[in-house]
């Protein structure tokens, strides 16, 4: 994990590792430790530049990767558990379509492009969460079975995609921006944004982590869970709402990053336990580590160019996942962690 943490620091600009650590500690301790973080012989200007780069460019991105990875991992685990389907992922309910449409509005109508820093996430967030809530309400009105929920989700996602296509058809410029956004990226990370993501993640994630036992029981089927004392419908709605919030936060700040939410729960189940009290926090950790790794690779893969991180989650994730499938047959524990 530490290696993963350290790697991006080496990425964009070559900074000696020792110096890097010292700069970090200097900043973290508000200047108390290592008053002179840079080795003697480095010009003060360079030292300042390194500090700035680390503190204001690299570190927020690292933190964003960790937070978003955790949100996606957690949301994926919750949805796989709720739907009892190993193929469920955070975008299952069409949340991504809603987010994309929200973001597209910004690109197309150029709403406050100048101060786009928070408008884009806000629109995407509203689009995503709005979609999630609409689906939940609609399915409740229609009877509330899992199948209804999925069908409503698929239907709504298609409608939203259709609207998006129509809108983009008349806005070629906007469509390029939207497709970049769709690939997902951690660019534009700032401490402020990280703070917002952290806040949202705590709000949605903490209650989610408390539902592990209920998720275990839901795996036996709604009726059995209910006969054991779980209010299956209420727990399911709560899970979906919280997972929607977690996903929406991720979508708002980083676009659509695939694969993290899908495979993190599987990794935990394979190497650790299928008890949801372990799968939920485990998926958050694995998701965080995984997205950071993908982020690092996206930075170093092609010098001077930062590729969209969404590409790397698939490139790295898929082979790793295959390896895991082959190595760990059912019920075999190998120990260790990601």
């Amino acid at each position: 994990m530490l290696v993963v943490l350290a790697s991006p620091l080496l990425a964009g600009v070559p900074i000696p590792v020792g110096t890097e650590v010292r700069i970090l500690l200097h900043q973290l301790s508000f200047g108390l430790l290592f008053p002179q973080p840079c080795p003697s012989g480095t010009s003060p200007l360079q030292c300042t530049a390194w500090t700035e780069i680390l503190w204001y460019a690299v570190l927020p991105e690292v933190l964003l990767a960790l937070l978003v990875g955790a949100a996606l991992g957690l949301s994926g685990a919750a949805l796989q558990g709720t739907f009892r389907n190993p193929l469920a992922d955070p975008y299952l309910l069409g949340i991504s379509s809603g987010g994309t449409l929200g973001a597209a509005f910004l690109f197309i109508f150029r709403l406050g492009v100048a101060q786009a820093n928070l408008v884009l996430p806000l629109l995407a967030f509203i689009g995503s969460l709005g979609t999630g809530v609409v689906i939940l309400l609609a399915s409740r009105y229609l009877g509330g079975s899992v199948e209804t929920l999925l069908l409503v989700g698929v239907a709504l996602a298609n409608v939203l995609s259709a609207i998006l296509s129509v809108v983009l058809l008349f806005n070629p410029v906007g469509s390029i921006q939207v497709s970049f956004w769709l690939l997902g990226g951690l660019g534009g990370a700032t401490w402020d944004r990280d703070g917002l993501v952290l806040g949202g993640l705590l709000m949605a994630g903490a209650p989610l982590l408390l539902l592990g036992r209920e998720l275990n029981l839901l795996q036996l089927g709604g009726d059995v869970a209910q006969s054991l004392g779980v209010d299956a419908r209420r727990v399911r709605n709560r899970l979906l709402l919280l997972a929607s919030v977690a996903t929406s936060i991720a979508v708002a700040f980083t676009g659509i990053i695939g694969f993290v939410g899908l495979i993190s729960p599987h990794v935990v189940r394979r190497v650790w336990s299928s008890d949801y009290r372990a799968v939920l926090p485990g998926s958050a950790l694995v998701g965080a580590a995984f997205l950071l790794l993908a982020h690092d690779l996206s930075v170093v893969a092609v010098p001077t160019v930062v590729l969209p991180v969404g590409l790397f989650t698939a490139f790295v994730g898929a082979p790793f996942f295959f390896l895991l499938l082959f190595r760990h047959r059912r019920g075999v524990y190998m120990g260790g962690g990601a």
């Binding site: 795996q219 089927g221 006969s227 004392g229 189940r269 008890d275």
Partner: peptide, 25 residues
Amino acid sequence: IRERARRVAWVPQEEAPRDNLRLIE
């Protein structure tokens, strides 16, 4: 639902668990 589960228990016709939990769990 909770009170009900303390009064009546159910043995279903069958259950097909996927996860290899321990019996005690």
